[in-house]
Design a protein around this nucleic acid. Structure first.
Lengths: 137, 137
DNA sequence: CTGTGTGCAAACTCTTTGCATAAGT
DNA sequence: ACTTATGCAAAGAGTTTGCACACAG
């Protein structure tokens, strides 16, 4: 089972054109086991370290970007200070709590955005992000 | 007319609880004369300098934040790298061109967002941001 | 006068980069 | 072996802060 999971990880990485190195395997396991999650480079680095996986912060950044380019992750911009990465790459939106920085998914088919004007000449819509900003009551 | 505008600026600042200093007057004039605009600290600082108004970058940052707290500006988060400030504080959304970093307003009554789930317990919706990300064709 | 604002430079945070070493195939 | 990835430490961008001086009321 552990072997099986490892093999799947390796396959996933290879399919993305990335060599299945120890670090990428370990980070991939943290990211893609279980349900969708939101991480920052810092949080993922801390998590890996806590589990005894030695990875440098620079490698975490590299890996997150490589995963993003490979379409395995998606970047979420909600706060200028830090960059979030989302393992859910499908069509969906976010709740963002400004007080604690927590990010929660909103299913893509739940929200409907209507009335988007035609984009300016020479530009095409790449994606529509909806961020529902929350505040503690 | 110039006098008149100056007096209006001063009044606007006083109303916001800010002393009408040279720098704040100058920045306010750049920001609020004419139509709505989007600036970054850098761009506004460059603009002020170009017009011969000596303002330090630190003061531009301070002023932008003070204006924002006073409700004269609104912060727009579209890119992790830099912070944009919008002189349009009303209900509206944005086109954001990832290629050149250009930000364009979308009237608030144009876009309709439907189906937003109820926020998690203990949280209240503060605002809904819609960002239509564009790419050059 | 008295308190607030400003400018400068240094500090700070998050992120990226260069280069020698290590690991993958 | 040959190539690509990693780690470290240093650089980099954007933003914030501390403190002495200047200005508004």
């Amino acid at each position: 089972m552990a072997v099986r999971a490892g093999a799947e990880q390796a396959e996933k990485l290879r399919a993305a054109g990335l060599r299945p190195t120890r670090q990428r395997m370990a980070l991939g396991r943290l990211l893609f086991k279980g349900q969708d999650r939101h991480v920052t480079a810092e949080s993922l680095h801390a998590e890996a370290s806590a589990q005894g996986v030695p990875v440098s912060l620079a490698t975490v950044y590299n890996t997150l970007h490589q995963f993003t380019e490979a379409g395995l992750l998606r970047q979420v911009v909600v706060d200028g200070a830090r960059t979030y990465f989302d393992t859910n790459t499908g069509d969906h939106h976010h709740f963002y709590c400004e007080d604690d920085g927590q990010l929660v998914d909103i299913a893509g088919d739940s929200i409907v955005v209507d009335g988007v004007p035609v984009p300016p000449r020479g530009a095409a819509v790449e994606r529509i992000d909806v961020i529902v900003r929350l505040r503690r009551r």
